[in-house]
Simulated assay, not measured.
Amino acid sequence: MSDLENLKEHATNIRKNIVKMVTAAGSGHPGGSLSSVEILTSIYFTQMDINADNLESNKRDRFVLSKGHASPLLYAVLCEKGFLSEEELMTFRKIDSRLQGHPSMRKLPGIDMSTGSLGQGISAAVGMALSNKYHDLPYRVYTLLGDGECEEGEVWEAAMAAAHYHLDNLIAIVDFNGLQIDGDIHDVMNPTPLDEKFKAFGWNVITLDDGNDMEQVLDALETAKTLEGNPTAIIAKTVKGKGISFMENKASWHGVAPSEEQCADALKELEGGNA
């Protein structure tokens, strides 16, 4: 099996677990978790130096899920990396579970920042990157934002600070699926053009026509590491609910759990290689 095929297999497993854990919980955010699978798979399996021995170490790359409601994605990736079991995934959002609706660094090793209040994740990532610069540490900081999240003013305050301090060790990826809980982002509070805005704030910008294409994501991440002097934003156009036909491009699946029957249909579709 090639490295690319292996990554795609990881992505399919992650999608399956997202669907299963949200169904088991009866709540959660599947749409924006599914849209970002290729992004986070690429980061965790090809970019970050994270492993079972350095989960709690400061001497490694960091990841901040700024769109904290997509916690099913992060938990499913950590499971795929072997840091927690599939059995524990099924405790998602249950009383006394380590897998809260929004990720908590106090509950689970491998969570680098507690997130949920939109805009605060990228702000924390800027602080981490600044600390690494100050201490002359070689580690990178990755953060994943939602396009709806970019309506938050705090995102742009963080972007301004990152450019001011020339944090070229910071890579921010925007999951640009075009939909948020209340509908099309252009109708709710239009934050576009995101590429031009990040450029205006002093960032390097890479745009992806298909952020669900693993090869495009990998190329963008590798290119981002070569850009010096300023932080880099990757604007990745994705599909909300990617991989499950009845969820794709539907804002209604932003924060709704599938029924048992819908879960079975979704898993059958993913097992058929349609993701």
Rank of each mutant, 00 (worst) to 15 (best):
R98P: 15
R98K: 15
L99S: 06
G101T: 05
H102V: 11
H102I: 07
P103I: 02
S104L: 08
R106I: 12
G110P: 12
M113V: 14
S114C: 09
S114I: 06
S114D: 14
T115R: 03
T115C: 11
T115F: 06
G116H: 05
G116M: 09
G116V: 13
S117D: 15
L118A: 03
G119N: 01
G121P: 10
A124T: 12
A125R: 00
G127W: 11
G127P: 13
M128A: 04
L130E: 04
L130Y: 07
L130Q: 08
S131V: 08
N132H: 04
K133S: 09
Y134C: 08
Y134L: 15
Y134D: 14
H135V: 10
H135E: 15
D136I: 11
L137S: 15
L137F: 11
Y139K: 03
Y139T: 03
R140F: 14
Y142Q: 07
T143I: 06
L144A: 02
L145S: 07
L145K: 06
G146Y: 02
G146N: 03
G148F: 03
E149V: 10
E151R: 08
E152F: 14
E152C: 07
E152T: 13
G153I: 08
G153S: 10
V155T: 15
W156D: 13
W156S: 02
W156I: 09
A159L: 10
M160A: 14
M160I: 06
A161T: 12
A163K: 00
A163L: 00
A163D: 04
